[in-house]
Design a protein around this nucleic acid. Structure first.
Lengths: 255, 255
DNA sequence: CGGCTATTTGAGGTACCTCAACGCCCGTGG
DNA sequence: CCACGGGCGTTGAGGTACCTCAAATAGCCG
């Protein structure tokens, strides 16, 4: 059920644990002592691999576990009565996927894997215990929740008040910027693992219009497409179309 | 600087404190012992009144206080490079306005009073101390943050995937529903203290189109306008146009 | 009453949507 | 290795929900 490494007082990964990337992600936004890091790395979890487009959370669930995204991408979405889908958050490797259920009874949205993913399923009870005994870990959890909230507000602005071209460019810019935390080369450009339909559901557009907007961005040299692959140009190039300011990502918070 | 009432062990308001409505609001989403309630009511604060359209928080601020909205309405907003404004949250009486600065260095959005407001300015340090000694209060703070995040996601869906009419109706429905916590009669209809321009900035529309959509809603009997006043019909009537399901407001959480 | 702001209405424009057809990638199985 | 099928991407044509601009009206506050 739970394979756990021995409790480590230092920050080198516990043998056998895969939570390394999770701790690195938290460290990008919060300070944690080596002891804190050791406690996190020693969390019990169940390892699971999922293919793409698999449901991870369902609206109405009462969850007892917090999945942590070890690799791959996942997204939260909501559905309108007419079947319209809005993707409301994108989660990247290292991200915890459901801290919320620590404190709310009911899940208010759906969640799916975007690519094949590796998950560490951590019992909420274990996380809760850790948060109670270690203030700085509780804090790091909160910071993650708050930063996701801030990103959500920026998406509200993006969908509500930007035209398709800067809207798309802004999203791509944000994604590249966020990926820098786990991939130092991301500022030179990233592979975007989203179909045009998924992009449309993030941006509040139709797939057809995303297609045309991508074409424009490509002609402007801001993205490169080959076959079904989509790759962004460097952040600096994207930003010229994007009205992008990274303040809302709170990368200054760890300093 | 700070007028504080004496610490009370029971839940009846501390003499002289105005934080009663704040505690009632937290109680709607979290369980708190009478001792917890007493501690909250005994929080030190500076009382302040503000007119409408006054700035409460500015993007880039490093805040040391958490304003609590004792009466009146306030909203968070963000600006696009072209001057477009998106209102990303509406806060109602009893709501804390900046728990976020407990854990993040920099404010990522602006905040203004919508109507005349009364504020209790609580030092963040006092809140932090309370959260550290009382787990259930820390929890209540978190629940408030999470519920606001959930509302933000619903707004993403609203702006991204609903047409103007259900979009407007959904927002009005939500507002009436939320106001029930502090005003039991709200389900019969509420006064909406927003100009059409502000409604437009919530909904990602133009004021002109909001005007036309309101007209349609009025002809359908879902809102009443007289002069510049806007009043909603009963929630049940609004809901017929709104695709509204209150799950995301997490009112089940206190139970 | 005067002046400001919010609302209302009209006319014309456009960014994005809908529908539909076609073609290309790519995984699968023969 | 090739043939096949299905999903995703691409393109075109036509439609529409919403926007822009502009002017007139109405409410509100001194």
């Amino acid at each position: 059920m739970t394979e756990r490494g021995p409790t480590l007082p230092c920050a080198s990964p516990a043998p056998g644990t895969k939570l390394d990337i999770f701790v690195r992600k938290l460290l990008a936004y919060s300070r944690l002592s080596t002891a804190d890091q050791g406690e996190l790395l020693a969390l019990p979890y169940q390892y699971r691999e999922l293919g793409p487009n698999m449901t991870i959370l369902r609206e109405g669930d009462h969850s007892q576990i917090c999945p942590i995204l070890l690799s791959g991408f996942a997204f939260r979405y909501k559905l309108a009565a007419d079947g319209g889908r809005q993707i409301v958050a994108l989660r990247i490797p290292g991200d915890p996927l459901d801290f919320q259920s620590l404190y709310l009874h009911t899940v208010d949205h759906h969640m799916q894997s975007l690519t094949p993913v590796e998950l560490a399923l951590v019992p909420l009870a274990a996380l809760e215990r850790l948060a109670e005994t270690r203030r700085s870990i509780a804090r790091a959890i909160l910071v993650d929740i708050l930063v996701e909230g801030s990103i959500g507000r920026e998406w509200q602005l993006n969908v509500g008040r930007r035209h398709a071209l800067p809207r798309l460019a802004h999203f791509l810019c944000e994604l590249a910027y966020r990926l820098q935390v786990i991939d130092p080369g991301a500022d030179e450009g990233i592979d975007v693992p989203l179909t045009q339909e998924q992009l449309a559901d993030i941006l509040g557009l139709t797939p057809v219009h995303v297609n045309r907007t991508l074409k424009t961005l490509e002609e402007a040299g801001a993205v490169i497409r080959s076959g079904r692959r989509l790759r962004t140009g460097a952040i600096g190039v994207l930003a010229r179309f994007a009205d992008f300011t990274p303040l809302y990502l709170h990368r200054d918070n760890a300093a």
